[in-house]
Every structure is written in structure tokens, then in C-alpha cells.
Design a protein around this nucleic acid. Structure first.
Lengths: 142, 142
DNA sequence: TATACTGTAATTATATATGTTACAGATGAA
DNA sequence: TTCATCTGTAACATATATAATTACAGTATA
């Protein structure tokens, strides 16, 4: 799985802890230790899917547009990492029964696996993630 | 997920279709369109876990040491890709509540996700994969 | 009109995956 | 016993994927 998922969840958690004012890509980037441009790119995806609102210009930034308990990790997975579970395999030798069909067979199996994973991830919302974070011992400020 | 999983499953399917004689890393490599050294490396793992037997020297190679219906995709996943589901994230900023705890929270969630995936993958054995392959239309020889 | 933001494309750097070479050790056959 | 044919691994090279960086246009605010 690629880490855009992690960054998206991180950002939404960040926005949840700062619900009233906008957060800039710089603030989020510092919190997640990644480059601000990546934050903007990933959050741009979330905006296109109506999870957040963004505003350009002075005083602009990002703000959550839904309640944190309305957004599940599966929602975020679909946006950022759809198909990531599929094991990569090179184009195998078509002249061999195994080579010719393995890719298709595994593809079908992992399509099911991803649906199955979906059932699990639907059970976790951003709100719950934030609650977990609050229960953790460390961290001195937002 | 890295493709050692795919290669391992491919190899075991190959060995299943050729149960009596040994297969060389060259034969399997051609079928999977990968380098023979990689085949040996991955199959070396399967040997260490007692799924196959290997023999060096002339006439040597690899042979399945269990029944294909005794080996599930979950067995292979654990050997080749354990922890692969964990989303990667950089060491985040420890001075921020979100940064300090996100990694640990997601780690726990994805530990559960991997167990969940396990339940799904346990349902598929190498035998079933081979049966699927046999049902496919194409492929002219092993 | 100056400043502080996002949006996004293009480029560069880094990390990871894979291929390749090299060679030691095992085995069987000539 | 010597040669050919395998596996087992380490070391190195190359390719691909991922992330950072640079650059700049567009937008909002004061």
C-alpha cells in the first residue's frame, strides 16, 4: 500500500483536531514530516471527493467538510490506494499453462481480498482514529 | 505487496502440475518470466519452511513436498510478505499529537487488517489455484 | 499591489525491486 | 576422477517506483 493513504488519514485527523480554523499545507506537512506539495496533492484528491474544503489565498488552507464519524478508512483507501492489494507480477510466459493464467487467477482472488479488507476498514472512522490518538500517552500540542 | 508472493504461488502451481520429476529454476523462471536466481532465492525460503524439497547437482531441482490442498495462500503470504499490508509512513513529528501517535494507531489497525486478510486467504489452497488455472481457456503446455 | 495561500506540472533525488554476474558446494554420469 | 549440471548466496548493476524539490500560475485578502 502506498503512503498517500497514511498521509490522507493523518491530514484528516489533523483537521479534526482543528475544526474551526483552516490548516495550511505547511502545518500538516510539518506534522507528518513530508513535503507540503505532497500534502496539497493528496488533499486535492480529498477535495475532489468532497471530504474537505480548500481555500486559496491569505488565510486559506484546508478544513474538514464532513463529520469525522462519517468518514471511514475504507473511504480513504478507495480514494488513495484502490487496487493496491493486487500483487504485482510481470507478464508471464503465455506458452505455459501456469504463466498464461496465474495473473488472471490471482487478480480475481485479490479482488475478493480487497472487498474483504473493505469490510474491516469500514469499521474504523476518522473519529475513532482521533480518539485512539487522544488516548495515547505522548504528544504535547497540535 | 511485493511480488515474491506471486512468484512463490506460481512456482508451487508449476510444481503441482509436474509432481513426479524435479523442476529446475530455469524452467520455473521461464514460465514466470523472471530471473532464475530470484526463483532460487524465493524457493529457498519455501524449502526452509518445509513446503518443498530441493536437490543440487545433475538432475536436481525443486519438488513439492506437501499435498497442494494442504498449502493455503495465507501460508505463502506469511512466508513471503508478512507485514506487507502495513502502510508505510515516515517518522512523523513527535512534537505534534497527530504525528506522535498516528503511526502506532495505524499499525494496530493494520495488524487487525492482516489477520482479517488471513481468514480470507486461508480459504484458497494451491490445489484450488491450480484448478482455476486448468479451467482457464488458454495455455498449450506446462 | 503586496502577501499568503492552493493547484499542478516538470524535474531531480532517493528508495526499493529486480536482474545480472560470480563462484562455492553438491550430485550424478561419463 | 573429471566434467557437466544443478542449488545457494553474496555482491553488484540496473530499472522502476516513490518522494522531494523547484517553479510558477491562479486566487483571495488586506
Amino acid at each position: 500500500m502506498n503512503s498517500n493513504f497514511t498521509l490522507a488519514v493523518h491530514s484528516l485527523a489533523f483537521l479534526t483536531l482543528q475544526p474551526d480554523r483552516m490548516a495550511t499545507s505547511d502545518m500538516i506537512a510539518k506534522s507528518a514530516s513530508v513535503h507540503p506539495v505532497r500534502v496539497r496533492t493528496v488533499l486535492s484528491l480529498l477535495r475532489k471527493n468532497s471530504y474537505i474544503k480548500t481555500k486559496e489565498g491569505t488565510g486559506g488552507g484546508f478544513i474538514f467538510d464532513l463529520n469525522p464519524d462519517e468518514v471511514s478508512l475504507w473511504d480513504i483507501y478507495k480514494i488513495t490506494s484502490d487496487g493496491a492489494l493486487q500483487p504485482k507480477c510481470p507478464e508471464a510466459n503465455g506458452h505455459c499453462v501456469v504463466g498464461a493464467n496465474m495473473q488472471h487467477v490471482l487478480f480475481r482472488i485479490f479482488l475478493g481480498a480487497e472487498e474483504h479488507l473493505g469490510e474491516y476498514l469500514k469499521a474504523y472512522t476518522i473519529k475513532e482514529v482521533v480518539d485512539f490518538i487522544r488516548q495515547q500517552p505522548s504528544g504535547d500540542s497540535a
